[in-house]
Design a binder for these strands. Structure first.
Lengths: 203, 203, 203, 203
DNA sequence: AGGTAAACGAGACGGTACGTCTCGTCTTGCT
DNA sequence: AGCAAGACGAGACGTACCGTCTCGTTTACCT
């Protein structure tokens, strides 16, 4: 099966961009409730059909925006070989993402919707959660490379996912559930706690 | 300042109960999207006005149900003086709450709505988050009572809220964000990680 | 069967007056649509039950107000023995009634409601239309008394009700249906037309 | 200034018809109170929005139906050159309109609403009253053409509108206000009275 | 003086309809 | 084909009044 040769008028990439921008704006300014297909179309200066041709629902719109925002986050990471720095970087990157008003609005709404929608859950896991997982795994990987026997033992015991839940979950609870800011001190504390958990698991 | 004497026909407590039940049912069966004021009124056998007289929005309904479910959770806790048991109990109680289909639907939706609504955020903090906070503080309190110098030192350093974010956040991420189940093994691991974090902070 | 002696607290005549006043005001200011039992109660400073104890519907309220206003009109008539003056007086009295904003609002609404409500129709005929009929009959009576053979012949032919419809109907159409004012010239023209019709019928 | 070319999906004329039919039916069966936008939509098998896209209120619906019914009446008139026949025809046509249950319900209700709504008053005058005016003017016109000096003199004095009020008002009062039927005898009497009034004015 | 019966204010109750909003689908004509 | 425009059936929104009901509180008359 080959890609069928494009027939008729090709899709407008300007519309693509306008739709995503409009979605981001609406999410940032009024949260999930403010995100309506009708509103997106109006703000993007595009017909409703043009939106529906690309996204089946506002949830899809939110996922697309979320994906977009997280991609930007990933690119901003420095390379490092120090596990402590890597962990701190991972935390900081996640925190950065949860600070974006658009992402805040989209994140929990998408998660909530995923509770009754297996396909969406899978998409979230692959495109949103996995982003955090990669960051955490980088830190854990460095820990394993450079650490001695203890760290290796830790790796045998602690599951990557626990560490993921620990780091990402703590940030989600702090920032999204409780609406608190995170500063460098908190990041240090969280990093210390995470490393302690790893070491404890290895003992 | 005293409460003014009730005038006019008193509110029907039967309606109160029917509305909460209906809300719980709808949340459990279809999640946040299935929760409509109209649906609640119909299922509760009550007029829409009767719902609106008590709750200003479906968000309010969700908060009430959440509050209700968490109250039930609290009551189910055994008394203990062992900090390890207390921590495990706290985790188990939170996990239990996040397993309820009604609570799952309500929780993140309410959190998402709170992002653009300071009053709601406050309500969530006072009535939902605080429930978890109390559970965590009980464990930490026992730790302080029974622990030696190390634990006391820990108390001076670690903030209750970090521990709260660590425990509740990890569970939220595992169960709600990622949709995974938690078993006893996971609870043990999380408890160990939390204690390790406390000890590390005290060092 | 005698009227049972009144037991319990007697009705408040202050409430009676307040309700009628409120009804009149609402009708005058916003017409039939503005007349709600709830609004009347609020404006009269009275509980809804107090209104419903006296009037079964807003239609009843309107009839009461109409009745009240027409009574006032009747009282204002001068005695005369000149048929021409009597006819002019009748027209003028009716016109006066249709000028009152409250009466305007009530009149057509009540008539409209009567179309599907025989009991109301009867009440309207007895309490509203009959008022105009009496005025017209007075003029016709004087005409008969003073007129010669021609007028007597007219009386045998023309029905009182035709004259009633002619006079009252013309005013209703001019003032209520078309919303025009009536001046003395119009009253003269209408009087002349009415008398011509009577004479023609007698010919 | 030209009418802009129609864009988007054109309005469904089937819906137009269904809405008018439903309105007519509801008015005929239950009068003004039975006319609800919700009911019209349901009976027409149409969404509420589809009704609101065409009519801003149930008053508008009633006006449209009234307009429609009167148009039908106009078409049913025979051509004649006899002024007496023309006057009788005009009366008969008006009477016919006021016999329709749908028109009865709509007529006075619309008039009542117009009392506080200048725009509606104008619409009523242009679309409902004017229909009767045309009928009356036809009779008066023939009278002028065929009559001698007397009739011409009459035309100089009597206003068309007085004749309109006289004829239409008498019918309205007889049929709608008092709820009486009109037979041929009444029509003859009314025609005679109207002609007498014209002649009297010309004298 | 005390009891009884009705009116009173307040306001909750089950309803109905309102007019608005957004949904996701479907024409229509233009590009 | 894609696209802008906009009508369509559907259905929830939050509000306004409906007419009824339950309260606790007066206010009269009648023992």
């Amino acid at each position: 099966m080959t890609t069928s040769p494009p027939r008729g008028r090709p899709r407008s990439s300007a519309a693509d961009a306008a739709i995503l921008d409009a979605t981001r704006d609406l999410l940032a300014s009024g949260g999930w409730n403010a995100l309506t297909v009708e509103g997106v179309a109006a703000r993007a200066g595009v017909a409703k059909t043009t939106v529906y041709r690309r996204f089946a629902s506002r949830t899809d719109l939110a996922v697309a925006v979320l994906d977009d925002l997280l991609d930007a986050t990933r690119a901003a990471l420095d390379a490092t070989t120090d596990p402590n720095v890597a962990v701190r970087d991972a935390i900081r990157a996640c925190a950065e993402a949860y600070r974006s008003p658009a992402a805040r609005g989209a994140y929990l709404a998408v998660i909530a919707a995923a509770d009754h929608d297996p396909a969406l859950r899978e998409a979230v896991d692959a495109r949103v959660v996995d982003q955090a997982r990669r960051l955490v795994m980088r830190g854990l990987g460095l820990l394993l490379e450079q650490g001695g026997t203890t760290a290796v033992g830790a790796a045998a015991v602690i599951e990557t996912d626990l560490l993921l839940d620990l780091v990402a979950g703590t940030l989600v609870h702090r920032m999204l559930v409780r609406g608190q800011e995170v500063d460098d001190e908190f990041i240090d504390q969280l990093a210390a706690a995470a490393l302690a958990a790893v070491r404890a698991a290895g003992a």
